[in-house]
């Protein structure tokens, strides 16, 4: 097997006195899509914040293509090709749709994605490109958030709870578009509370529970009981 592109090793995270992660180790291999599932408060978002550098770690706790990046700042990590579609979309409200996309491309990485390509993927955004991004509907905002991440031509894309707060039909269409979005040569991490959704698009699953990895494996090897035990801790 090829070497992992992204790994965390014994990753710990703290918010003040509160410890959110206890020695989490995960691997993502080239062109692999993994899912991270877990209940509310299991530490999924904290893990994403640690990988993207919004939480600072010890250098060796996170490696990217063999380089220790745990102590880098978020903007430095972004330039390495790690992009995130954050939970709750979090568009810039003072920027137009198009400005939100442009700022995503500001890291200056070359690749297939451009403003034109994003508009091709989500034509509705082109029509509405000059309006304030946060005045869009929830589903359209999610498109902008995905497009914004793609504009940096990342090598790995982190999706943090992309179905949260969206209508089922929109969630369905976003999941249908995922194979196009996660193109050739790209890896992805899908963070979800919805186990079925996450499992349907990923080749491996990690389950987090109270800040620890409680289960990992290929979806076909995991039984429902094992997953619910790992998920709920019963």
């Amino acid at each position: 097997m090829a070497d992992a592109v992204l790994s965390t090793r014994s990753l710990e995270a703290h918010y003040g006195d509160f410890q959110a992660l206890f020695g989490v180790s995960i691997d993502v291999y080239p062109e692999e899509v993994i899912a991270i599932i877990g209940a509310n408060g299991a530490g999924k978002s904290t893990l994403m914040r640690s990988i993207t550098g919004l939480l600072v770690n010890k250098p060796q706790m996170v490696t990217w293509k063999g380089q220790a990046i745990g102590a880098l700042r978020a903007d430095q990590i972004a330039r390495l090709g790690i992009a995130m579609v954050p939970e709750g979309r979090q568009l810039f409200q003072s920027l137009s749709v198009e400005e939100n996309l442009i700022i995503g491309g500001q890291v200056g990485r070359k690749g297939a994605w451009s403003l034109g390509k994003v508009y091709e993927l989500f034509p509705v955004l082109k029509e509405r490109r000059n309006i304030q991004a946060t005045s869009l509907s929830g589903g359209q905002q999610q498109m902008v958030s995905i497009g914004r991440a793609l504009m940096s031509n990342p090598d790995i894309l982190l999706f943090d709870e992309i179905s949260l707060g969206l209508a089922p039909i929109i969630i369905k269409s976003i999941y249908e578009a995922l194979p196009t979005i996660i193109g050739e040569g790209m890896s992805a991490i899908i963070v979800e509370q919805d186990i079925a959704k996450a499992v349907s698009v990923s080749s491996r699953v990690y389950c987090l529970q109270e800040g620890r990895v409680s289960l990992e494996g290929r979806p076909q090897d995991l039984t429902r009981d094992a997953i619910s035990a790992a998920y709920f801790g019963v």
Binding site: L54, D75, A78, R79, F92, I103, G104, Q106, V107
Partner: peptide
């Protein structure tokens, strides 16, 4: 300008702006 875009982005949401490669 792109500098102004960065100003507004950081003003809106510092964390997400950092994810866009902006050094706060």
């Amino acid at each position: 300008s792109s500098l102004g875009r960065a100003f507004r982005a950081v003003s809106d949401n510092q964390d997400i702006a950092q994810l866009m490669g902006l050094n706060k």
